[in-house]
Computed example of a mutant assay.
Amino acid sequence: MSDWQVHAVKYADRNARTRADSFIFDDNHDAPHAMDYFIWVLQRGDEIILVDTGYDTTEATVRDRPIRIDPAEALAPLGIAPGDITTLIVTHLHYDHAGGLHLFPNATIHLQAAEMAYATGPCMCRDTLRMPFTADHVCEAIKRVYSGRCVFHDGDGQIADGVTVHCLGGHSRGLQAVRVRTSAGWLCLASDAAHFYENVFSRKPFPIVVDLEDMLEGFDRLQGLASAPQMIIPGHDPLVMSHFPQDKTDYIVRLDRGPETWNFSS
């Protein structure tokens, strides 16, 4: 079968952050450190797979984290309408990755069983662990289960030819990365298994963590899933927008041909 095209679609950013918000161990903890927010689109002929949904204007208001463009509208330059999405990989159920499930009503979601158990289990009684989740988003995922439109995976799983998911945990109990076959080799969409290049390549854990050992082991696993280090795509790093070529518009970059430039430190 042919290879996949992969696009990163940036729908939001947050600049009022410091390196202390991104790394547990960092000597320069007061320095500014911006974060971008993405969803990802896989295309091969008429096949479309969406990876994550972002969050909508309602969630943006509640959390005081504005978005630049509604994730459903952001797909228009790629010729995709929300109703076209029938396969949706949810890397985990945090608000910024599953906060737009309702925007894609025709989609069957692919989710790790461990993530659903975590997001609906005793850990959610603890404020610190519950903070990245929003109950309405989790309930929307549950509705997909009851309507027969949720496929659960337990560890590694295949979504389509050339597209697999891999449970890494760490940041959330059932966090999964996505491995995609491209013309430049195996691309790994790390999602929040590595928010930034520095997380994985400097082995600096992200502060929101359920299991630190799983997070550190996940950094190693990411490097095994990708054909080369530059084919690991972190979930929130603004450097992605500068390393990869723009396509269609200024908030979309194409990933499947590899980066034009690459370094992992800002």
Rank of each mutant, 00 (worst) to 15 (best):
A12S: 15
P32V: 04
F152C: 02
A117P: 06
L222G: 08
F206A: 08
L187E: 04
A184F: 03
T128S: 13
G174T: 04
E73H: 13
M231N: 09
N15P: 02
D250E: 11
H29N: 12
Y118V: 00
Y11I: 12
L101F: 07
F244W: 13
W186K: 11
E140V: 07
Y251C: 14
Y146R: 12
G45R: 11
N263A: 09
D154M: 10
V180C: 03
H97A: 10
S191K: 00
P122E: 11
Y197V: 10
N28K: 13
T134E: 07
V51F: 03
P245V: 08
E213T: 14
I67C: 08
Q223T: 13
S147I: 08
D256R: 06
D161G: 15
G83M: 11
P238R: 02
A114V: 06
A160E: 11
T61M: 13
N15M: 11
P205F: 05
S242I: 05
Q112L: 09
H29I: 14
Q223L: 15
V180P: 05
D161W: 03
L239R: 15
P77I: 10
R65Y: 04
H33P: 06
F133G: 11
M116R: 09
S183P: 02
T164Q: 07
G99A: 04
H92I: 01
